[in-house]
Design a protein around this nucleic acid. Structure first.
Lengths: 346, 346
DNA sequence: CTGAAAGCGCTTACAG
DNA sequence: CTGAAAGCGCTTACAG
């Protein structure tokens, strides 16, 4: 109703200058004397002038918005608190900078491609966040072709023209395995995420390397899609077989929580008869029983750093990679010495 | 790189008409002969012309985008799968309609106000979704003053100029209580959400009404902020007191899952010694142990309906309220006859 | 049914 | 240091 009535022309007239000058003053460009500038700004303030984003967009070809497209089905998305937290981090940066976040949630990888094309066709955003990196990620050449600036969460394997904001998840997994080994576990299994995803296979590699380092036999690994349902199924398979593992390292917390459910159902006591560790330290983790020993990720921090980097890239044309502090193991109650060890110790 | 090279002027020249005519053809406006229209459209297709959203925005004063601002701290947001699912539903409508979703996540109610003002000052969106309705919700007068179209999730108490898309959660709570009463429970407690929120107090009212209807004494109710942490605390209070309830009706699943953890920790077996019911049917619910008896919400459906309604409102200036099917009780394993009943039956 | 022009509200060379 | 003009790419009365 009341908004957008006053334009740059009103300010110019009232200040007795040209529209161009007002624009220069607004954008801190050289070529306007300090006195004139402050007079213009004062008038703008008096009039309550808010420069029209639409008009600026049209002439500067910028959108003043960043994009995030996430390709997941709604259920999996719902049990994964990564995105809400990541987005909260992103927003904490954007809101102060006058930027908006346009979010696109799509059900499949094909839809994801379309979504990026749509975003640039409509000039909706000035850059995007690339999450859930995959092997030979096809989105990197796509975005390159589209000329859309991006920042990747984690460093892609191949060459990438985009800055990467990373948080090393290897130490966390390694710590988990070491911790379990020190407790006396020898049959440790891993319920892994999708190996198509970089963080899925990287966690798996870290798991196997840590096992080797601990001088333990290669443990069983079951690949999943990171979903609660898959975590549940995999746990059941593991626990109902001969020589079931005494400890399971999960690639994320939702699967670990599902695993806890399966153990309860089978009458296997955690941590007495089965130790488990998670990854993410989601809110639920400290409230399940026993509370989950897990690796703390910091998605809010990640979101902040990614937003800052992307904005720098867009504004200056370049940005450095940033490495965030590695995720670390948080010891709670879901892991303990295996039953036979305790028995012999008693 | 390649995008946005061809403009309406190119199409007009190639088709041998004026820019105005191209615009008319594009927008299905009367005043252009069928032959001319199809010729223009053909040329546009040949040239791969994509009308510039920015230019359209400037002249039509529309943004072709919808807004959602959610005011929650990141942790609570993370354990609540409502928004991801709701957003997925919204997107499924928007993507086909060439609309985008701009999402704003803010930590407080004050920031929320600012966010709405910013959204309209920058003309970012043509309308917004109003979720988490509160008593005497101050956002309704705010949006009215700002002249920003909106759709409310649920019907506000007072007068509202906006269409409401609702899903009745009363029957689900009532069914929960009735079910528990029929199992033989007489001391049923409620761990409620925030009474400042409409759905928090409505579920509480439904709980008390159902108790009365069942001829049961008024149960204990503890108010929370819907968070996992609060659900955990409230459960502990309830279970460690004299005459602890034999059944607890939770206002949402995350709190119920936290309650399950507390019960385990206290050595209280569910459902043998304690029955619990949740609300939402989040993904986790069927994978905890015992699987949660809960009320199924349908946030994806809600998102779709809300998006459709909001778009109708924006395009036509009016939209009908819509009532979605009520949420219903889903019986799983977390509720059973209370111990003493079973004892006497044995 | 069609064209030429003005306008949306900024920014940006280009002159002075 | 400052002004006047053209341009961003559409839409929309207004004439014909």
């Amino acid at each position: 109703m009341k908004a957008q009535k006053v334009t740059i022309a009103d300010v110019a007239k009232r200040a007795g200058v040209s529209k161009g000058l007002v624009s220069f003053a607004l954008n801190d460009r050289p070529g306007v004397s300090p006195e004139t500038r402050s007079r213009i700004l004062a008038v703008a303030g008096d009039l309550g002038w808010r420069p029209s984003l639409r008009a600026r967009s049209l002439s500067t070809r910028r959108s003043f918005a960043l994009g995030l497209v996430v390709a997941r089905n709604p259920e999996v998305l719902g049990s994964d608190p990564f995105f809400p937290s990541f987005i909260a981090g992103v927003e904490s940066i954007l809101s102060d900078r006058g930027q908006a976040l346009v979010l696109s949630v799509v059900p499949s990888a094909e839809a994801e491609f379309l979504s990026y094309r749509q975003l640039v066709a409509d000039c909706r955003v000035d850059g995007v966040f690339l999450t859930d990196l995959r092997h030979d990620d096809p989105r990197i050449p796509l975005l390159t072709e589209l000329g859309l600036p991006a920042v990747t969460l984690g460093r892609p394997e191949g060459p990438s023209p985009f800055p990467a904001v990373s948080i090393d998840d290897t130490p966390g997994i390694a710590e988990s395995v070491t911790y379990l080994a020190q407790l006396g576990h020898r049959r440790i299994a891993h319920i892994a995420g999708s190996s198509a995803m970089l963080h899925g296979s990287r966690r798996r590699d870290a798991f196997e390397a840590a096992l080797r380092r601990a001088g333990l036999p290669l443990g069983q690994t079951i690949e999943t899609d990171f979903s609660v349902a898959a975590g549940s199924d995999a746990t059941r398979r593991l626990l109902t077989q001969e020589d079931a593992p005494t400890a399971i390292v999960y690639a994320n917390d939702p699967m670990a929580i599902a695993g806890l459910g399966v153990a309860h159902e089978l009458g296997i006591r955690v941590p007495d008869e089965l130790s488990i560790t998670g990854f993410d330290d989601i809110d639920f983790s400290r409230y399940v029983y026993p509370p989950l020993t897990t690796v703390s990720a910091t998605p809010v921090v990640w979101g902040r750093a990614a937003a800052t980097t992307l904005l720098t890239l867009i504004e200056t044309g370049a940005a450095e990679d940033v490495d965030l502090p590695a995720a670390r193991l948080i010891i709670r109650g879901s892991a303990a010495a295996p039953a036979h060890t305790r028995k012999s110790a008693t």
